[in-house]
Design a protein around this nucleic acid. Sequence first.
RNA 1: GCCGGUUUAGCUCAGCUGGUAGAGCACCUGAUUUGUAAUCAGGGGGUCGGGGGUUCGAAUCCCUCAACCGGCACCA
Length: 650
Amino acid sequence: MINLTFPDGAERSFAEGTTGFDIAKGISPSLAKRTVAMALDGVTTDLADPIERDARIEFVTRDDPRALELIRHDCAHVLAEAVQELFPGTQVTIGPVIENGFYYDFARNEPFTPEDLPKIEAKMREIIARDKPFTKDIWSRDKAKEVFREKGEAYKVELVDAIPEGQSLKIYHQGDWFDLCRGPHMTSTGKIGNAFKLMKVAGAYWRGDSNNAMLTRIYGTAWRNQEDLDHYLHQLEEAEKRDHRRLGREMDLFHFQEEGPGVVFWHPKGWSLFQSLIAYMRRRLAADYAEVNAPQVLDKSLWETSGHWGWYKENMFKVQSAGDETEDERVFALKPMNCPGHVQIFKHGLKSYRDLPMRLAEFGAVHRYEPSGALHGLMRVRGFTQDDAHIFCTEEQMAEECLKINDLILSTYADFGFEEIVVKLSTRPEKRVGSDEVWDHAEAVMSRVLEEIAARSGGRIKTDILPGEGAFYGPKFEYTLRDAIGREWQCGTTQVDFNLPERFGAFYVDADGTKKPPVMIHRAICGSMERFTGILIEHFAGHFPLWLAPSQVVVATITSDADAYAEDVVATLKAAGLRAEKDLRNEKITYKVREHSLAKVPVLLVVGRKEAAERTVSIRRLGSPNQTSMTLDEALADLLREARPPDLSR
RNA sequence: GCCGGUUUAGCUCAGCUGGUAGAGCACCUGAUUUGUAAUCAGGGGGUCGGGGGUUCGAAUCCCUCAACCGGCACCA
């Protein structure tokens, strides 16, 4: 006998091997009908599984949040069956549940096209309507391999081989179709319902390895009901509206063109935004850092010394004279990183331990030859500006410096409204330089710092460890922030480096007169300023806070009678340091309101005969249909207060 | 880099099975002097992504290159 505890606390005994379905039916036939799976001690399993031990039991109905994952997983199976029914000879591989849906990877000589999706979707609905029960078999390894080999499913054979000895091979059937799968599944295909949609086809490498064959992946989304599906699709539309590439065009911030793949043409408004960010960062650095500027183009030999020519060459732009090359055959490279340049600055002249920590910052423009398929608007470019800094310090100062950087990073993010931050510690990778003792020490220090970071935040900052993800020269912290619509972006980074200073023979003279290589800490807060600008565009959906808005105020006239006054207002605002423009065009005020609202200008000052006579303005703020009237002086004071950057308002 | 898709006016897009381009918005001109999300009328604008080919004839079919989009891989 086994004892099962029910959600209400009741405990009952059953014969060993009783299935979840039997128990549900025993309670009520309607419960059995509604139940799609069960959870034993919190682990979701097939309802038809015999229960062999004491456990807490819960019945998972289709409305249960836990059913969603099952719906998606079942949907993936149905997708695979539909594809094999419509396209015989297609091999199945894997089909997991992902955020918001699922996918399935297929191997087929001719890849699927978007036009195939409606057909496949229709077939899926047909299979769901058949409502065949999901049933499970346990097969021996040999049988599984034999059956799949006979079916021509080479990838499944490979998957069977990869499953560790002693682990059972579960085969799930739905009608005549079956698949190797770890499960669990619902009771029948009919439970999936109709709230799903195939979204896109894409290429994907077998097992995520670019050396392997390219498979065709079909992505789908699935939900418990039509409302949830509609809501999700609506969310996608909303996300598209705030896409920085779209807003960049609509708000006239920047553009790209064919001749410059991955490099940005910043327009006046976009550059204003970019410069507001730089100005902000500069103010934040003023207290502790010295700003420098290292050359764009440096001899190959320097990159050989730094090691970049060895392990980063594929990503570097080589530069040579375009004229008479016999005159100067030297090979140069456009800098992909600022660190070697900063080491040269550190090296110049003798440094004492008294000079440490030495913090060199640069808004360094770097160029990296990113793979063509990786380029994506401002988010992934080939030429960008890092808010970079390198801190040269002693080993003893390392922890303190990391914490200082942490404070700077977190307060910066907070100023932009990013409060949900995860700090991840990446530890030693397989391929690395330096002795294990050095790594042991560095990782120990970093772990302590990570704990301190979590403690200081009072638990607000989440931390994580990524084993093996560190840079080859040292462990690193990665700062991930979450934007207004829940997406995560890795921006800041702090990396300790025991390697580069030595490669360049950089040292400082210690108190005892000996020469020692400094520890170098690489650190960025925004990371790429271009990318960070892109993140802000999407985070704010173009509705920037006043201090960042490229065009803060537009003064619009109602009739030409107010022109002179409007000019006066704009001059006053500009003199006070606001970014103000005038709109004296011979258009109706409704037209102007609409236009500037679409351009996402935060503040619109409307002036007519009345305002001109009284020296007032009518203020209309973006997103609000209301207006308030006040004197120009009052409005100016309000706007100035509001336009003050957060670091200057503290 | 790999797989698939896309590329027509400044923007969004139409253009069927080949007969050498069209809409809306934007722009320009004129009229209108207007009170908080589109005033009316007229006009200009495209070597249909580049190159090559098939054809009497190509935006349309084929090849090729490029950029972009969606994924994958990459992301020091």
